[in-house]
Every structure is written in structure tokens, then in C-alpha cells.
Design a protein around this nucleic acid. Structure first.
Lengths: 243, 243
DNA sequence: TGACACCAATCTGTGCAGGCATAAAAATAA
DNA sequence: TTATTTTTATGCCTGCACAGATTGGTGTCA
């Protein structure tokens, strides 16, 4: 529905708020937006409702539409993540996501070894074999897509829908890393072996083995890209202030 | 805004969809909703936009508002979590959240030890001291509130906004566990000591110590409540099917 | 006769325009 | 300072036109 009018307005406002060109505390009026974007009130209102859902704005009577600060944004919202990745907060967003996946993926691998359905174990073995093949050939494009699928599969095979839902932003990390040339010419043998071991362990229901090998992958991943966010400021949200 | 009309409609429809009384694949018409809920089109439309954002419905021309299945729901949406906790999927939701916090909190403790601002370290020491005090007295109500604050603080002190945002659902877990009588008469000495050690480690910038002690807390937590979701089915979402 | 492509009717969400009600800030009076 | 009035932007409602997808009918061709 990217073609729908209200989605366009959401995109317009959301990217500007997250990007910083509409600073926190700003107050915009629905009537002004109608005129500026040349759309009707209903479109504006629906867009504002969606943005309010993401925590980007609140709309109160007699005041208007108030733009909120980053502490209020929903960091799990797909749009918010995308807008942050396209802004100067890219580093901080990548750091948050990477820390999250480092935490989650070993547990996902462990769970997958215990509960994954047979079809997913099979596919995991297939994917890791293909990763070996194309990795050794230095075909980075194909390797990237397989890598994305591999990690998405492990997350899905955990049977935890919260884990599975991290596949999309994690794919964004992997794509970003490759685009930025942070991948070696061809994947390290070590990394290939770890992926293979994760698949083997899951296939053999070896939960601890799956976890250990995934932890190894995560350690290397972290070392490879943590330079990206050097100096990006951390945000400390006092959990009481939000109540 | 809980008093606003459109929020009421979101609540009405959302809880019914997640609760299962409006099954997946159902098609409801905006006009019918107008009449049934006695509200105007604009209210219905804004509510449907919000629900579409959560992945509960899609609305297409000539067909109506189609109710989606659980694979499409956004598992990080606060409303969705709340509705699931109030439904017969409560077990599965608690399991997902618990697995997530087991993954995340040790890393959060480690990060907090490295980057937490001084004020948060201080408060963490204060909270853990109070937890000791009220815990030994067997004042479970006060202990619960301190426990919630403790974990929320560690998550916030990590400087990772995605971690910090898990404080709300984690608080729901802790409250639920106490309400269901899954807490011992008084907290185990071990648990008190671990909380104290986490606070100490963070205060002393001992990242590995903070992680280890938090891992101990998580292991015990898991053992205490994993009986809650015995037999709850796992959902395996093929990451390709969603593309 | 039957299969298939094409077209028109129809249905429902999308978007537009304008009106009244209401709540909360701001200004004014006590 | 406190209470009251005024101001003003959003909340909510309704009528209308449009767009796009489904459906069924029509005609063509094998």
C-alpha cells in the first residue's frame, strides 16, 4: 500500500521527525499539514494516528500535534528502524540491533536444536552447505542472501515469534555490512565452519553445541562491525520518567 | 487517550481478534462496524489503520477488512502483548517474553557495567539494598515493585533503547508470577545475593561479573515459571512465506 | 458443446469538503 | 493568587465522488 496517500504522509512526516528536521517539541497543526501536503483532513488524521502508535507524536486538543523525542519512539517499529538507519543515528541503530542479535541468536540456536520441525533442520543443512560452496568461491552476493536466510531460519526454528520477527532488521544489518565493504574478500574458513556446526548441532538436537557455535559467530560479527558506531552516543531512558 | 472513541474501538476489535472470537480470515465491513459500535466512519477508519499497523488486519477495496493470523501480528506491539496475555495464549506469550529476557538481561548487565551513568549505578545499589531488606522481611508486595525497578534499571543502564523498552512487558511477567503464587514465601537468599552482586559488579564496572550473576538470576527465574507454559504450542513462522 | 478471454456491473475502501461539539490553553476579571 | 470567560485546534460526524478489485455475463474460438 506504499501507493496509498496516507502511507505517503506517514513516510513524509516519519522520516523528517526521525531524521531530525522536525525537532522534538515542535508543534504542527493538522490544518497546516493539509495545506502543505495538499491532502484532506482524513488522510492527515489517519497518518497522525499511525505515527502516534509509533510514539513519534501525540495529538492533543487545543495544542496540535506535538513531536516527541527519541525516548518515546518505539524502537521495535519497522518504520522507526528504517528511518533511523537512514539518518545520522545509523550507528546507534546498528549497535542496538547488533547487541540484540548477539543476545538472542545463541538462545535461538539452542531452542532450535530442541524444538525445530524436521523440515527446517533439513533446510538449514542445505543452506549451510550452499554457504560453504559459494563462500569458498568468493561469490559474496549469493553468500549474503544465504547468510540472511540462515540466520532467519535459525530464529524461526526457535519457535519463538519474538525471535523470528527480528529476521527483517537483522537482514538489514547483514546487507548494510556487505554494502559498506565490511566483509572480507571471501568469508573466513572459521565462520563457514561455525555456520556448518550450528546447522549440524541443530540437526542432531545438540542444544549446547548449537549455542556455542552461534556464540562464536556472534563474537566475530561484533568485532567486524563495532567500528561502525564508534562515538555514537548512547541513550539512557529512565524507566520511571516514562510512567 | 484511553477515553477517546477510536482507542475504544481499537481495544474492542484488537482484543477480540487476538482472543480468537474473530477468527483469522474473517472479513468485516466498515459499514457494519459503524452500526454495531455506533461510531462514525472516521473513527472506524482510524482504528483500522492502527490495527493494520499491528498486523491484525488488512483492508482492501471491494473485499473489506480481513482479519490476519498470529504469524502476521507484531509481537513487540504493546497492545498485542497485553491482549495475548489476557487470552488463552498467555502461556506462549510468557514463554516468548521469558526466553527473550533470559537472552537479553545478561548482556544488558554486562553493558551497564561498562557504560551506565553514575546516577544509575548509585540507584541500583540503593534498590538492591532495599530488596535485601524487604525480601528478608517477607514483604512481597514491596519486593515485587523493587524487583521490577531493578530489572528496568539494568535494562535502561545498558544504554540500548531496544533493551530498555522491554521493561514494560518484563514488569508484566514479574507481576504475573507473583499474582499466580509462583514466588516463594520469601525470596531465596541466593536470589537476593545475586541481585546484590549484579549491582555491585555494575557499580565496580565488572562486566563479566555482572553478566554471570544476572545469568544465575535468569536460570532460577526460568526454572520457577517454565511450568506455566507446559504444552503451549510453538509457532514456527517461515521467514520466506512472509515475503 | 465447452474452454477461455474480455468487458461491464457492482461493491467497498479511499479520499474530499465542511459542519458542529468539546476540551484545554490563554486571557481576563475578581 | 484564583476563578471565569474566550479562544482555538482537535474529535467526531456526514454526504459525496472516485478508484480498484471481484464477479458474472458475453462473445469468440477450438
Amino acid at each position: 500500500m506504499a501507493t496509498s496517500l496516507h502511507a505517503h504522509v506517514v513516510e513524509h512526516l516519519g522520516s523528517r521527525i526521525v531524521g531530525g528536521s522536525i525537532p522534538r517539541g515542535s508543534i504542527v497543526l493538522a490544518a497546516d499539514l493539509e495545506q502543505k501536503l495538499q491532502v484532506s483532513r482524513s488522510v492527515i488524521r489517519e497518518a497522525v494516528r499511525v505515527l502516534a502508535q509509533c510514539g513519534l507524536v501525540t495529538s492533543t486538543k487545543r495544542v496540535g500535534i506535538r513531536v516527541l523525542g527519541p525516548e518515546e519512539w518505539n524502537p521495535y517499529d519497522e518504520n522507526v528502524i528504517r528511518w533511523r538507519l537512514a539518518s545520522d543515528q545509523k550507528g546507534a541503530q546498528l549497535r542496538s540491533l547488533t547487541e540484540l542479535r548477539i543476545s538472542v541468536e545463541p538462545m535461538a540456536a539452542e531452542l532450535a536444536a530442541e524444538v525445530a520441525p524436521e523440515a527446517m533442520r533439513k533446510e538449514l543443512m542445505l543452506i549451510s552447505a550452499q554457504m560453504n560452496h559459494y563462500g569458498r568461491q568468493g561469490d559474496l552476493r549469493r553468500f549474503l542472501e544465504l547468510d540472511i536466510r540462515f540466520h532467519a531460519l535459525v530464529l524461526a526454528a526457535s519457535g519463538n515469534e519474538m525471535f523470528a520477527n527480528l529476521a527483517t532488521p537483522i537482514a538489514a544489518i547483514l546487507r548494510g555490512r556487505t554494502e559498506l565493504g565490511l566483509m572480507p574478500e571471501r568469508p573466513h574458513e572459521e565462520a563457514l565452519a561455525w555456520h556448518q556446526s550450528v546447522a549440524d548441532s541443530i540437526s542432531n538436537m545438540d542444544a549446547q553445541g548449537a549455542r556455542r557455535n552461534m556464540e562464536s559467530i556472534m563474537r566475530r560479527t561484533h568485532n567486524e562491525i563495532c567500528s561502525l558506531w564508534e562515538g555514537a552516543p548512547r541513550v539512557f531512558v529512565d524507566p520511571i520518567a516514562k510512567k
